[in-house]
Design a protein around this nucleic acid. Structure first.
Length: 423
DNA sequence: TCTGGGGTCCTAGGACCC
DNA sequence: TCTGGGGTCCTAGGACCC
């Protein structure tokens, strides 16, 4: 097996820079919802010491002192640019697995005609850059986990020119593993990283040579698989067909906390509507639903409460009205006065394709009339933007709405915000 | 004043069965 | 002093990912 991992560099920041070239060379971060945390950083921002996921209030002073530019997240833009990048890859490579918004694995096995894989990847890299404006790095190896290792080193090394092929020389895998900290291995998170270092396993190379019995005890079969992949045995293969989703979740922290059930209900109404629309988009129905609501866990001086509950949806459905009704009823049951709530959400569970439901056991999930209504609803919101058509009771100006103080325009997905060029 | 959102998989333990 | 052996199914929680 031979895999390439194509990973976009500092993806959200790079997307912003496509339409804001004035941001090149500046320290830039993109913030999470409510402008809460830094979720993407330019190299210049990393050099200032901004950590992944760091709360914005901790780095706000860098705006004044070092010209840090902080942008609110613009997911419409990132999703659209992602599609463009992935379609360039799909044009060039026979088999592609889109792994996340900014990463794809390619299968290089069926490319016998290509003599120089690294050269071919450099060409691909230039093409993505030219056609989308996005810089990518590419790692090549015999397993996905090793391709991840290669990719990280390709990003860090200037002379790699964005591509590192660990299959081209027999001693490169070991060298790469020695230069990778155990916590930077795909599949080794914060927790396991500490456990490993405590046991004297510091580098990826140490991990690849660790005692299997110990690995199994500390990290189970998952850890064992990671070790095998580091040793060069491919455990994970290329998944070109996306599997059916198992859950749909819509949840948000509020712009500011609220003790009003009216307001939280308004939020739930929107979240549940969006969850139902996602479900219909995937052509599935849900047989169950969970709702949760919680206070602000960072305000430890306030009384804390975090509750959740679930109900069955019978018959299984993707109908907005049924899902919203069930979610709101459950929220009202979970509700207790006297708390300032900061977050709520809905999780649709037990998803199935309607054609897989037992035929005659249940009545039709919704009447044909209701189904047509949902189709019309989706079509209107597709065409005119999310929320163009929605159930009543929604409160546009409520305090729970998220803060996004520095969002760039939806350059590529909204006609009213399309960029204009002046000579 | 200020701390994201959306997923997957695995495991341990309890309920229940014969 | 002693209190079966196996199974399955479900759920909650914990780990991981981007």
């Amino acid at each position: 097996m031979k895999f390439a991992l194509v990973d976009c560099n500092n993806f959200y920041v790079s997307c912003e820079r496509v339409f804001r070239p004035d941001l090149n060379g500046l320290p830039v971060v993109v913030l999470s919802n409510n402008d809460g945390c830094a979720v993407a950083r330019s190299n210049e921002a990393k050099a200032l010491g901004v950590a992944m996921g760091q709360p914005f209030f901790e780095i706000k002073h860098l705006v004044e002192s070092h010209g840090l530019v902080a942008l609110s997240s613009n997911y419409a833009l990132y999703g659209d640019i992602s599609n463009r990048v992935m379609s360039v890859l799909a044009d060039e490579a026979p088999q592609v697995e889109v792994y996340s918004i900014d990463e794809s694995f390619l299968d290089l096995d069926n490319m016998v005609s290509v003599q120089d894989l690294a050269g071919w990847c450099r060409q691909l890299r230039r093409r993505v850059r030219l056609w989308t404006g996005i810089p990518v790095s590419i790692g090549i190896a015999n397993t996905k986990t090793l391709a991840k290792v290669a990719n990280r080193l390709a990003k860090k090394s200037a002379k790699a020119d964005g591509v590192l092929d660990l299959t081209s020389r027999s001693d490169w895998v070991e060298m790469a593993l020695r230069r990778t900290e155990v916590g930077d291995v795909w599949g080794i998170g914060n927790r396991w990283s500490k456990v490993c270092v405590g046991a004297g396993i510091v580098t990826a190379f140490d991990l690849s040579r660790a005692n299997p019995g110990w690995i199994r005890k500390a990290m189970g079969n998952v850890g064992l698989r990671t070790v095998m992949e580091l040793q060069g045995t491919a455990v994970y293969s290329l998944e070109t067909e996306p599997a059916d989703r198992k859950t749909v979740c819509v949840s948000r922290s509020f712009g500011s906390a609220t003790a009003s059930m009216e307001e939280v209900r308004g939020a739930m109404l929107e979240y549940a509507s969006r969850a139902a629309a996602k479900l219909r988009h995937d052509g599935m129905v849900a047989a169950g639903l969970q709702v949760f609501v919680s206070t602000d866990r960072f305000r430890s001086e306030d009384p804390q409460r975090a509750v959740s509950g679930s109900v069955k949806l019978s018959p299984a459905t993707a109908d907005t009205t049924s899902i919203v009704r069930a979610a709101v009823q459950l929220l009202e049951r979970l509700w207790a006065d006297g708390y300032r709530y900061r977050k709520t959400g809905v999780l649709l569970i037990d998803l199935v394709r309607p054609e897989d439901l037992p035929r005659d056991l249940f009545p039709a999930a919704s009447s044909p009339r209701q189904a047509r209504l949902m189709t019309a609803l989706d079509a209107a919101n597709d065409r005119f933007g999310r929320g163009a058509l929605h159930l009543g009771l929604s409160a546009p100006a409520a305090a729970w709405r998220m803060r996004r103080e520095a969002k760039t325009p939806s350059w590529t997905t909204n006609w009213r915000e399309i960029p204009t060029v002046t000579a």
